[in-house]
Design a binder for these strands. Structure first.
Lengths: 141, 141
DNA sequence: CTATCTGCAAAAAGTTTGCATGTTC
DNA sequence: GAACATGCAAACTTTTTGCAGATAG
């Protein structure tokens, strides 16, 4: 039984064809996808699939932390499968490819400095990097 | 002459009433505002103001880095005046208030670790913290 | 068999564009 | 006065909702 199925079941949700189609399309994806793109890629798997169900599946998965929302500075976002544990995404500004990384201790320093400067009690963070992936780097030269 | 006027002029844009109304509403704001909210707050200043001009002003200001887009995990965003220099925002999850902080060196460690882990060349980042502001902290107890 | 989920259509948000008029420089 | 910016209406895009029928447990 796949991990996501256990997660859904544990939270009292059902394992359905549309949800499976969406999550498998995400698993195959090489970069974050928009709901529209996901629909296209998931339809071969479940031809009756509608865009609405993609949205509903994504919102559910995001709530359960099975998928991650990927933002860009100007706001539009895509979805990618989230690795278990606490990781962040880095997006290639040229090709859109994405990788994940984890920075346990280093973020702690940032959080502490921010708390000292602002007096806020920090409870969460959103960190995302932008850059150029190795493949694009090579292509540029 | 206000700083934003100099910035606009230097970039070849005009100082207009709608733009002034929007930026002054932002200056008065105690938290990030949506375009719709900004319209309401800027209209007293310039009654003919339309929502479209708010959008156009915000897009321009964002391009010139005069305002910062503030994201939430689920994507919707607001706008706030950007401090000069490189700062980040922390948003209170209870009341929406926002503060800025800067973490020069500490982010560098994060960037280096990410580069080492992913092989990407990092060129930018989006870091935003969430938490509870001092006022809400007090109110809770 | 029952509660949950889906798909459709339609509504609701949110954002952008075309164009005639008004403003800034 | 010329170029730029505005405001309106309307188009477009993106996301949500209502509901009858389908499906998982």
């Amino acid at each position: 039984m796949a991990d996501w199925e256990a997660m859904l079941a544990a939270a009292g949700f059902r394992i359905t064809e549309p949800r499976r189609a969406v999550i498998e399309a995400l698993a195959r994806a090489e970069r974050p996808l928009s709901p529209e793109e996901l629909l296209e890629r998931a339809q071969p798997e479940h031809s009756r699939l509608g865009l609405v169900s993609v949205y509903r599946a994504l919102n559910l998965f995001a709530r359960l932390q099975l998928v991650r929302r990927v933002h860009h500075e100007d706001g539009c976002h895509g979805y990618m499968l989230a690795s278990p544990g606490h990781t962040h995404a880095i997006v290639c500004q040229r090709c859109g490819n994405t990788a994940e990384f984890s920075v346990e201790g280093d973020v702690q320093a940032v959080v502490e400095r921010a708390q000292a400067q602002t007096g806020y009690r920090v409870s969460g963070h959103m960190l995302q990097l932008f850059g150029i992936c190795p493949a694009c780097e090579r292509a540029e030269h």
